[in-house]
Design a protein around this nucleic acid. Structure first.
Lengths: 248, 248
DNA sequence: CGGGAGATTGAGCGTCCTCAACAGCAGTGG
DNA sequence: CCACTGCTGTTGAGGACGCTCAATCTCCCG
């Protein structure tokens, strides 16, 4: 479980500079020259903490900000009138949430912390103002939103064409590569989400997810105990996942 | 291939001003004050025509521009390494395509004309430059991209939770409302896409689409002959579609 | 009129869902 | 200390929705 990043500033314990953030190569700062980073820091509110299960924002409430995950993990979901939930994504440190809400005055989805999680808040009006002045930052916003659209397409592909095994293999590989990007083990990690979240996200029944996990285990592809997962044969998993690259 | 910008006066019959375009209330101009419209017109190349089946752009080729559909209709799709196609959206006049490609230097998907289609081209570099100068236009771009993300989520929801009947009902209703938005009949229209496109988009087999169409017909919900469709009982269709709102 | 693509209809089967029982584990309280 | 409770995850049996395969029909266009 990713430990919350300890921030060692005498003045404000919750504040830390984007300059020193280990995620600056994944997050918004990556688009910006070192000497312009202060302008981004001026608008960001860093280090807000949420406990497991707490909402970072809720669907249909006033849209005020986008958030970058700093530590922990987040799931976003939309709720229909009939109360059904559809998880639209899992977000790990360095990833930005709230991009799907920039068309409205209210959030289009709900974001919930899957574990103890800290985020950096980017108030939308200030962010828009800043991107208007900084072409690289604007470009990066377009980049991120476009990436989000592509992720949606990949998910649609996964849901409409792939079997349960293929979907789960793809998700495991996606998580693996995202852990690796943060210099963590890509073969040995702890799932931040419950089986039911995986099932919901991938359009499967919980029982099916469970069954596929044990099947993978029997085939020697993974070792799983609860949320602890070890990928034993990544190549075989990629073979199973085939052409489906899934950005949870 | 980037043509020098054509000036937009009444010299060419293919050219028409955004000022006079009947879609200006759906397209990019809607974000802009009348007196600033010329700046958008300066960068747009209007009235490029494509025959049915022609590509407006192709996946993996150099990303140069976004396009607004002016007349006709377009489907976008992604192709996997194994050659499978997943249609990611249908686009009607006034709608913008190419937004999913703004993260890369190459197109993330392929856009194909479903019928004889004309589009307006917005070269991406000029568009980005312009949105940097015009906050309302930037905001509108964020709006459109965010909308696209939401559409993806709605589609994922549809694919993962809904039956064949629900999916098709949702698609018919989506098309209906989009025809209506253009002041055309919302109950009597011609499908721009083949059954196989519908099937691919909704994650179904062609046969299933066909069966559902006839079932709807037997139930008196619609009347369909080939691509001609008449919605006889919109309320009932909405009941079938339940909570799934589908923005094809 | 013939060829071919698109659309429809039928039969059989497979994947995954549903329903149900059970196991493991943590927290609670007697 | 252990029963009790609740939550999460696992396993089994049966059934349904939609896919596959195949034949037929319709319509368009040469």
């Amino acid at each position: 479980m990713a430990q919350p990043i300890r921030l060692h500033r005498a003045t404000s314990p919750l504040k830390a500079s984007c300059h020193q953030c280990s995620l600056s190569n994944l997050c918004l700062p990556l688009a910006i020259e070192e000497n312009e980073l202060d302008r981004l820091e001026d608008i960001v509110q860093q280090g807000r903490m949420f406990n497991r299960g707490e909402h970072i924002f809720e669907q249909s409430t006033a849209f005020r900000a986008c958030y970058a995950v700093r530590s922990g993990s987040v799931k976003t979901s939309i709720i229909t009138e009939s109360g059904e939930e559809q998880i639209t994504g899992f977000f790990m440190p360095g990833e930005l949430i709230g991009l799907d809400s920039m068309s409205n005055t209210t959030y289009a989805s709900t974001a919930k912390a899957l574990e103890r999680t800290s985020v950096c808040e980017f108030p939308i009006h200030k962010l828009e103002e800043l991107t208007g002045k900084m072409p690289e930052l604007q470009h990066h916003m377009y980049h991120l939103m476009s990436q989000e659209i592509q992720n949606g397409h990949q998910l649609a592909m996964l849901l409409s064409k792939n079997t349960a095994e293929e979907r789960i293999a793809a998700l495991l590989l996606s998580l693996s590569s995202r852990f690796q990007r943060r210099r963590m083990s890509g073969t040995n990690f702890c799932l931040p989400m419950a089986r039911s979240d995986i099932a919901n996200f991938l359009g499967l029944a919980v029982e099916t997810v469970s069954r596929v996990f044990t099947r993978f285990q029997n085939q020697g592809l993974i070792k799983a105990r609860g949320r602890e997962v070890e990928l034993l044969d990544v190549d075989a998993l990629q073979l199973v996942a085939r052409d489906s690259s899934c950005q949870g």
